[in-house]
Structure formats: C-alpha cells, structure tokens
Nucleic acid binder design. Structure first.
Lengths: 353, 353
DNA sequence: TTGTACGCGTTATCAA
DNA sequence: TTGATAACGCGTACAA
C-alpha cells in the first residue's frame, strides 16, 4: 500500500494522500475558489449559509491552509527567527522557552538557529532566515559583532537583541537587557554586608557584552565601601564551569587569598565552588560565592548558590512583545525603546549565614 | 528617513528598501526571468558568460531567493518541525542542539514548538507545522499519546520519535531510543557490585515511555543477584528534582531504609541527593545514588553523579539523518528501521568509593 | 453575495 | 542557449 515510499516523498503529500487545496473544496462545493477563500477567512462577503457549508466540507476533506502560498501574497510569514549561540546553555534555553511560548500565543512560530559562535554559521543562518522571509529576528547571543549585526539588519526586518545592547544599531534594532552594573553592585554589596573585604571577581569573556557592566558594579560597590580595588583579585574566566575551576586555582595561588568571590555567571560560580571543595575549602566558610543569572541549577547546587536572578522567561516574552509592537504598531502607543530590566539578589547558602 | 516605520512593516521589505526578485534582475540584465532562474540555480542551460554576469548583478542588487515561492513549486520546504515538551529541560535542550546542528549542516532549518504537555498546545503545534508544510517532524517528548500520534501522522510526512518507541505507529513513523532496560540494569548492577542489597528505585511519571524499561532493568539486576524484590523500595517520582526530594522523605520513613537508590533520571537523583544532605545523610556513605541521562550538571553536582549516559547530541543527529533518509532515500540503502542505542555507565562519586 | 482575473516569486515545460 | 507560458495555492480588486 505504502510501497511508493522508497521512491521518496512525493512532491505534495503522498501519492496515497494528495493534498487538498481550496480549488478542490470549490469544485466539490460547486462554488469558485475565491468564495472558499472568503468563507475560510471569515469574510463578511459570504452568506452564513455557504460559509458553514464550506467550512464543514473543508473539515471533512482534511483541508490545511498552505501558509507559504498565503505568505507569498500577504507578505508576512508570521514566523520569527531566533538566533542563539547554543540552545544547550541553560540560560539561553529558558529565554528561548519564553520566546517560543509567547510567540505561539500570539500566533507566530519560531525558526531556531544556533551559531555555535562560528562566524560562517552565523552568516549562513542569517541568509537562511532572510530566504525564509521571517518577519523579525530575536538574537540571544552574548556577543554580537558589528559585522554580524550589519548582516542581520540587512534582512530588512526588525531585530531585537537580548542582553546585547549596542550603541551602533540601526533604526529597527532594539535591545532588552539586564542592568549588569546594578546586578554586579548588588552581589558585591551583599558580600560586603556579610563582612567580606577581600572579594575577588571572576570575569567572563571580554567580548561578552555583559562583562564590562558586571565588573563596573563590582568596582563601584567596593569603592562605596571604602575598599581599595586590588587588580590581583580580578581573575580571568570564560563563562563556563571550567573557567571557574581555573579561576579558583589562580586565587589559591595568591599571597592574600580572598574570602569571597563574585562570579560573572552561575556556571562560573558552580565550577569555582566545585574546585574549592575539591581543594579542601568549605563554601561559604572558607570562601563565600555569588553568581549571576539564577539558572535552574543555582538552587540545586550544593550549597545552593547566591546569585543575581534575571527574569529569563519574561525577557523572552518581552522580546516577542516588542517585536510584535514593531510589526503591528498599535495606533496610540509610543514606539518601542530599549529596555533595561533589573536583576534581583537571591540569597542562598553559598554566600554565608 | 525611516519615518514610515510606525505605519508598520511594509508588505515586502520596507518602502525604503523594496525586495528584489528575479524579475528585477532580469529587467536590469536584459534577459528573461527564466534565464535568471537558471543562472542562479547553476543550470547547464545557460552560457557561462551570462551566468556570471547575472550572478554578479544578483549580488550587487542584494538579491535573496524567496524560499516560499521556491517551495511552493518544488513541494519541499527543507524545514523540519521539532516538537518538545519544554526546551528548558536540559536533556531535551541537548538533543535539540544535536538536531539543529546537523539539520543546518544538511541544509535544513528547524521550526521549534514546545507543547508544555498541554494537549491543546500540542494540537495547535501540529496544525501549524502542517500549514507551514514541514518536510518531516521530530518529536522529543517523553510521552506521546495515541491520539496525538494520530494527528502527527495525519500531516502526511515522516515522523521520528526520540525516546518514545510505539508499537502502534504508522508506516512513516520511526523511533530512536535508548535501551532503558539495559540502562536500568547497568545502574542497578553497579550499585549491587558496590555491595548494596537494599536498593530503592525512584520512579518517573508512569506515562513516560521510558519508565517501564528502566524499572524492568532494575528488577532484573536484583533478580540476577538473588535479591528479593521489595515493593516498598519502589517509590513514586515525577522526573523533576522535587519528586526526588519527596522520594527521599518517603524512603526515610521506611522501617528498613535502603543503602542505595537508582533514580529514573538525573533531575530526580539530584533532588534526592539534596534532600538527603539536608537531612543529615551523607552521599554516598549513608546512601549511594545513581541517575539516568547524564545531563551536563550530573558532573557538576556535589558529589558528582553516577549515571547512565545517553548520547543526546548523537541521538538528535541520528534522528535528522534518519529523517533525511526517509525524505531522500539513497538508491542502494536499506530502508530505515527503529534504532535502539545503548546507554553507558558513568561512574562518579555519588555511588561510592 | 458570488465569480473572474490577476499577482505574489519561483521552477518547469515547451518552442524557438 | 534563450524566451514565453503555465503552473504552485492563495488573496483580492473588480465586475457581475
């Protein structure tokens, strides 16, 4: 019965089951295809009678509207492209969950592309999104190069950047990002309140757009507390757990060890905690630790991690809503502007009593 | 300049930047649009001279082929739909990363939909994928209801199920799944080798298709070791960390407490470990623990978690390759069949010395 | 209230 | 080697 299968997928639907179009419905209903089109799109230009008749028929025939054909004439695809570095990053995954979820609610679907931070992949992704005629693009990548942004904007559709504010962005590009400086300040300030004065900062990658802000917040909190900034206490990391592990070793090698560490993000913090414990240190007794992001595992690590919580799902949601406002501006409203959301300090056990 | 923006996105591209089609190129090049089409698709029916001339022109004009129009006539979209429960699940996220990555390599793009396990969302997602004319669908959901599968197959395109083998699937539906029974056996056997005889099993949701197999493996290992099966040692879980926490409390309430626990998955195991530590138990000394999946955090938890590793990325990759073989059967090859991959025991510290 | 005719951007089938 | 012309499935201005 399904023997034709091995010959490959027949062009449209299988030979066993050809696809039904509005013309087919029209033929069976004895009307023109335009009447069918109107009936299915609930146009007032059709009698209620034929409307229901056609709709029933469409249901019986198993009709499914062809979004491509529709988009071709309408000029919109109700699809938004989402570009991430990797979906395996727990932070990004949660943001994307927020994006997909609200996009779905608004009748949009999502094309997901991951760049793996490889420039060629990024460009290929952009070309593909452009060809697929997405209505807009949301980018959740911690670093968006200038050239890359240029290509992105070359698609000619609105772009929303998450955690990646850029000054040199085009007129259709907006960003929504967490207040990194304030978050860094909150975390450091918290450690200071806990009585620490030698506080390390484990940095992220320098090309991550959030890095500078978090470090500034760290510096500011120190300054406000009258603690002299010690460059030796700022160690390099990479945003991943292994970076945190290496950072701990670097701190261990210091003459005067820190009693606390604020880490660029949770992954770094978790790696640092693990390495500390492996080296016989107790957290938070020997070294207090605070992270950034509040990924799901922050509360499941041992000890549970004190961190700055970002409203990840909400940021995804907000990004979609901003995108829709760009695509379908509501008459009265003000045009969108860049958004900065505040992170929240979540005190858990890794920062002490 | 970009003042027209607030009037909404103009149909195709912005007014500032109308989209260029092959007809535009044809006009400028003084040839017919079919010649342009041929030149761009590298047809041998065009002189090398005009071919390069047209291609250069296309580049200058910033031409981007319209995938929709193309698909409309070709009958393929080079798009596959991916259905997950939630992308925020670390296991699923890694599988999807594997899917997106290899799909990209093969020239396919991915539409991501998350069902949140809500039936209405699932059906809406299926309808949307059908309308968008995806070439195939990959499902990574731990439970696929019979009705749901029916709808899925109603799209008329191949379906690949990950970790969700079903006997009652249609002729175009295949599955790739881990050997749950063997994995459960491996983990339990490992705990037995470590000297444990009272070993608990913390179950997953009963409607998860992997649950039965893992439990069977557990039972078999016990039987082979001559250990009597004690139903009291099988406690309910839900596949999440809070389920593991509750399970530990249940085990604590037992007359004869277990000295080890095999958990349905890593999230459950992590929750159980955390609850144990909160209750003054030491892992693995007081209770040894093994999980299943080997999510990224298994190695980052404290103590690092012994678990059964699933080749998550490879499973995603394999799913795509299977899909492509269904879409473009290579002449000589055998038709795809359901695949069962073996998990690997990864011994870390949570299971003892 | 309905039907006709055209266009969206492609590919493909004919003639030339 | 190239150019008309007809599809693909749909929306819509225009005419009836």
């Amino acid at each position: 019965m399904a023997m034709g299968w091995r010959e490959g997928c027949a062009p449209k639907g299988t030979k066993d089951m050809p696809r039904v179009s509005i013309k087919d419905i029209a033929r069976q209903a004895g009307v023109s295809h335009s009447t069918v089109s109107r009936a299915l799109s609930d146009s007032p230009l059709v009698s209620a009678q034929t409307k229901t008749r056609i709709r029933l028929l469409a249901g019986d025939l198993g009709y499914s509207p062809d979004a491509q054909a529709r988009s071709l004439v309408i000029g919109r695809t109700w699809t938004i492209g989402v570009v991430v570095t990797t979906i395996a990053d727990p932070f990004i995954a949660e943001v994307v969950q927020g994006i997909e979820s609200t996009a779905h609610d608004k009748g949009y679907s999502v094309i997901l592309t991951s760049s793996n931070s490889e420039p060629e992949r990024e460009l290929a992704a952009v070309a593909m999104l452009r060809s697929k005629r997405v209505d807009g693009v949301i980018v959740t990548s911690s670093r968006v190069g200038a050239i890359y942004l240029e290509h992105l904007e070359g698609i000619g559709v609105p772009v929303v950047l998450i955690n990646n504010h850029r000054e040199d962005s085009g007129p259709y590009t907006f960003s929504i990002s967490v207040d990194n400086r304030h978050g860094g300040w909150l975390a450091t300030q918290h450690l200071i309140e806990r009585g620490h004065r030698r506080i390390a900062y484990v940095a992220g990658r320098e090309d991550h757009s959030s890095e500078a802000g978090r470090r500034e917040g760290y510096c500011q909190a120190l300054a406000e507390a009258g603690i002299a900034f010690d460059p030796a206490l700022v160690v390099r990391g990479n945003g991943r757990s292994d970076g945190g592990e290496e950072a701990l070793l670097a701190l261990l090698a210091l003459q005067e060890r820190p009693t606390a560490a604020f880490c660029y993000n949770d992954m770094t913090a978790i790696g640092l905690v693990l390495a500390a414990q492996r080296n016989g240190l107790r957290v938070p007794e020997s070294i207090a630790v605070a992270g950034f992001d509040d990924i799901a595992f922050a509360s499941l690590s041992n000890p549970p991690l004190t961190t700055i919580s970002q409203p990840k799902r909400d940021m995804g949601k907000h990004a979609v809503e901003m995108m829709l406002e760009l695509l379908n501006p509501t008459p009265g409203s003000t045009p969108p502007s860049n958004v900065v959301v505040q992170g929240q300090l979540v005190v858990r056990e890794s920062s002490g009593r």
